[in-house]
Simulated assay, not measured.
Amino acid sequence: MRLQEACDKFNSLAGIKFGELFSPSDMDMIIVNKGKTGQLLELALGMHLSSSNLDFEDGELKTNKCDINGNPKETVFITQISSVIDELIQERPFEETHLFEKISNILYVPVCKDGNPRDWMFLPSINIDLSSSRFSELRDIWRSDYYSICSQLKHHIETSADGYIHTSNGKHIQVRSKDSKPYHPIYSNIYKRDVSNKNHAFYFQKQFVYDIKRMNG
């Protein structure tokens, strides 16, 4: 399924309470495991869940917990960095990176989780396509964030007391730890050693949501 098709289908569902949108068994799953909303959105769109690199043929689905006005309650996970640590250290050109692939065409879906799960709902989605001049400001911000984070990570590796990477922030994007025990160290072929004792990932910070709401307003 292409992202625009999914966007059109989804927006016909926006504003419908989960109790009306999903079956009782789906609602039981939501109540038991509140982290399944992204998968439920895929099911609502008639998609097959997969472990492929992208959720759509030409883009990525990103959901986020918000209030009724679409204000974010959480940051937005983008992708793990362990497999690309050396391209970050080497500052591979932004448009050639795994990160760019994951964020160059996004269907951003805020999920209002105020009150009872049966009253939750998907809010209108925003399709962020970095090839559109409309989002040139975002492309510039994310490119700047990427190079800043690459520089910060390299600085941490070379100067911090433990020789590890640490939380690195841009305006919208950050890298921070994302792992659970047993932890998964990140090994760099460039430095020939572990550069972290646990996995890390890219996230969109909350400011990202406020800015795309403004651009889409």
Rank of each mutant, 00 (worst) to 15 (best):
S50R: 10
S136E: 11
K181E: 14
I157C: 04
S25Q: 06
I30E: 00
G46L: 00
F100Y: 15
K178W: 08
D86F: 09
E95S: 12
E137Y: 11
C112R: 01
S52D: 14
T63W: 00
Q39D: 13
Q80C: 13
E42Y: 02
V195D: 04
A6R: 08
D8V: 13
H48C: 00
A6P: 05
N197P: 06
K9R: 15
V109T: 03
D162K: 10
Y203G: 12
S144K: 15
K34V: 09
H155F: 14
N71I: 02
N105M: 06
N189R: 12
L130Q: 08
I149Y: 04
S180L: 02
Q207H: 10
E20Y: 10
G163C: 08
I128R: 04
H200Y: 15
V76N: 02
H166I: 03
T63G: 01
Y210A: 08
P110R: 03
H172Y: 14
I85E: 01
P182N: 04
M27L: 15
S23W: 05
K206Q: 14
Q174S: 14
K34A: 12
K62C: 07
R214A: 15
Q174I: 06
S148L: 10
V76K: 00
Y210N: 11
R214V: 13
K102C: 11
L49C: 02
K192L: 15
H156D: 15
H166W: 11
H184D: 05
N127H: 11
L54C: 00
L40H: 12
S160N: 14
E87K: 12
D114Q: 05
G35V: 03
P72K: 00
H98A: 08
Y203E: 04
G15C: 09
L153C: 11
H156R: 05
C66Q: 01
R193T: 14
D119F: 03
D58N: 11
F22H: 04
I165D: 01
L107E: 06
V175W: 07
R2A: 07
N169L: 06
G115E: 05
I68F: 01
G170Q: 04
P72H: 01
A201H: 03
E101K: 13
L54V: 00
D8E: 15
Q90K: 14
E96K: 15
V84M: 11
I68D: 02
K154M: 10
